[in-house]
């Protein structure tokens, strides 16, 4: 059964239809052709699909597309201002926090949400904020360095 979805993604009104069983991630990637949010575990365990939903980081793979109706959603595509990267994106580059890069969009969305809710995160805040994001290349220390750098710049 098809559901009509009227939502706001990265500040732009979007209207499209999707099957009721569609996840928000599939809606973003397959219906809207926004491939920045990554499909990985597809069970809400790895965080590669993280987007910001009404101000909160969530796993888009286990969220119904239908629940995007009336919501404000921010994806990795919404962070840069033209060619100018968002400070969190730039911090990941500057500290070398990117290895294969597949987990990076999810991390950056978790960090963006963290820095939206607290300007000066503690080490514990940081660890909680990214505890739902897995980096299989295991470059965790540099990711934490990037978060400290982004917090200092914002």
């Amino acid at each position: 059964m098809s559901v009509k979805i009227n939502t706001t993604i990265n500040g732009q009104a979007v209207s499209a239809s999707a099957e009721a069983s569609t996840s928000l991630l599939e809606f973003l990637r397959d219906t809207l052709e926004m491939k920045g949010s990554k499909l990985c575990c597809n069970t809400g365990e790895c965080g590669a699909c993280t987007v910001i939903y009404n101000g909160k980081p969530i796993n888009s793979c286990v969220t119904m597309a239908a629940d995007a109706n009336g919501a404000q959603i921010t994806t990795i595509e919404g962070l840069a201002d033209g060619d100018k990267l968002h400070p969190v994106q730039q911090a990941f580059i500057d500290t070398g926090a990117v290895q294969c890069g597949y987990c990076t969009p999810g991390y950056i969305m978790s960090v963006k949400a963290l820095l939206d809710r607290t300007k000066k995160p503690t080490q514990a805040d940081i660890e909680e904020a990214v505890s739902g994001n897995i980096c299989r290349c295991t470059g965790y220390n540099k990711i934490v360095d990037a978060i400290h750098l982004a917090a200092a710049k914002l």
Binding site: I58, V62, T63, G132, N133
Partner: peptide
């Protein structure tokens, strides 16, 4: 209880 993303949902 799981991750922040899951707890938010």
């Amino acid at each position: 209880f799981a991750s922040l993303q899951v707890r938010n949902t």
